[in-house]
Design a protein around this nucleic acid. Sequence first.
DNA 1: TTGAAAGCGCTAACAT
DNA 2: ATGTTAGCGCTTTCAA
Lengths: 348, 348
Amino acid sequence: MTVPPRKATIHDIARLSGASPSTVSAALSENWKSRRISEPRVEEIRRIAAEQGYSINMQARGLRQARSGLVGMVIPIHDNRFFSSMSQSFEAFARDRGLVPVIASSMRDRNEELRIVRTLISYAVDYLFIAGATDPEAITALCRTAGLRHVFVDLPGPGAPSVISDNHQGAARLTRQLLADMTGDPTPRGRIYLIGGVATDYATSRRIEGFRDVLAEAGHPPAPEQIIACGYSPLRAKHEITALCDRLGGLPAGLFVNSLTAFEGVLGYLVGLPPEAVEGTAIGCYDYDPFAAYLQFPVHMVRQDSHRLIELAYDLIDREDQTPALYEVEPKLIPPRTIDYGPHGQFG
Amino acid sequence: MTVPPRKATIHDIARLSGASPSTVSAALSENWKSRRISEPRVEEIRRIAAEQGYSINMQARGLRQARSGLVGMVIPIHDNRFFSSMSQSFEAFARDRGLVPVIASSMRDRNEELRIVRTLISYAVDYLFIAGATDPEAITALCRTAGLRHVFVDLPGPGAPSVISDNHQGAARLTRQLLADMTGDPTPRGRIYLIGGVATDYATSRRIEGFRDVLAEAGHPPAPEQIIACGYSPLRAKHEITALCDRLGGLPAGLFVNSLTAFEGVLGYLVGLPPEAVEGTAIGCYDYDPFAAYLQFPVHMVRQDSHRLIELAYDLIDREDQTPALYEVEPKLIPPRTIDYGPHGQFG
DNA sequence: TTGAAAGCGCTAACAT
DNA sequence: ATGTTAGCGCTTTCAA
């Protein structure tokens, strides 16, 4: 139970093994072939290091090499199926490259987002991924002066490569599906409403376009009040759906919920209704949650391929050419009552 | 669009401001009062630093100060409501203390877990939190030789302070609730089954005890086959529930599902059944998910207070006395069809 | 095949 | 009130 006075360094190992610090350093890292240290020597050094519980000081190594071995990612929140699944993939690919992932959440706050980026720059992350950026241009500005490679995911930025879902297509397909499920005339209650998201977000705006295009194509272009981009907060969404139903005198014929978090809020309202009240409404949600897929009423869901999104983002960051460009990944439509095991389905 | 040749250092700022590096260092950090640098000087230095886009190199600072400003946490998986909500709280408390959180997932693999701990030690994290530890004693051994303060969360370890849910109580309450909902005799199909989790995990074993105690108290101690601790994998749970129902010729009267991930798998089976088939079964799940709370059938859920768990863990790590001890936090029982907004409910 | 020495960017101790 | 110096632990020339 005795705690060693301080952690062992290569100098300790050098002393104990009779080698020099630089030899120890080389023996313990991968570049001992180039230094042609004799194999027994290497083994002896490694043995002693293990014996002493030596572990390399990455701060020192990073300082010297001007790289940290860290990859940063900013996400809006951890506590969300879409983003947590993204974190899982982000970590998996980081590991494959021998990098250590540092994931921080901005709570969708612009200042917090920038604070995090600055912090990650201070820690000299080797690359930075920004998912759901609030202010991509400010981020790019910070990264530029730090000479930091970065990629935008989910929400694009004009100053760096961006990987996003094909939001227009996903929304269009979901809308078409909901229309097909709906019956009756386009009276106010007979209409379909989009709820959730921030209209100035690129992702939301593209989804709104998809929604609008399909409705227009069907001969019923949406009135402004059919689009309720009230943000991502569950509580806010609950408030808005309540107000809407009060206005309409009941649920509308169709509901396009624009995020899982907004859907949580909507659910908070639906929970208070008699089950049959929901029956006449076609419901869809952009983003997928296995439990949301098996609610009392059928829900169509859009599953974004977060794994592919991240994979592509890593590809882009490796490219020599960091010219800004937009890459789109197809989301899939998940029918109601379907469990879609993701790439991490074997774990739990 | 010109990229500066390299990032600015305090030496650059020193040259530009005509001050010495140490003055710059002091002016830029909080300890300039003790150095009694004149206020205008401080402001001038800060202005130049901002102008140059200076950001401190935390590797260098950390190396010098022998602390990194990082806090590590190991969790089993990101992609899980319980753990991602824990990450959210972990991050919030870290921010409060000016620390940067580094969260890594072990995928419940012992070797991966130890690899991660070693990595975090290399990065000189100031504290380490381990949630759902697979091999707590090995972790403690590593942390001891590194002189690293650590706390176990959710699954306790004998070598450090541990904060866990009161699993016995939570399971007992859930079991009692399920019994109350059940009807009929204790025939095989009339029994209640526990599915999911790993019997050798402390958390699961305590829950099994709670389950067992309540059943015994009710006069029907469980037979061994009523406890199916088949792990956390959704696919495995699906397989096991399928086999169970095949054996029984239908669903049992009660189902105590021991984790959200197992519940996903169970759901994968239930999805294929006619809705009325599930009606006669009382279902409960240890851990809470807002969507799981509003399925086609009622589900009782146990909501562990991950926020409080983490808060207490931070308290413990601050204490001078790091003697191992177990602290328990009460979980709450969430009735079916209830949306329980957590501590992060205002975000999305 | 290996050692010595310099230096990464910062802070803290010691000067002044 | 501020400058000088040493050194955190590592890697990387440069010598031998």
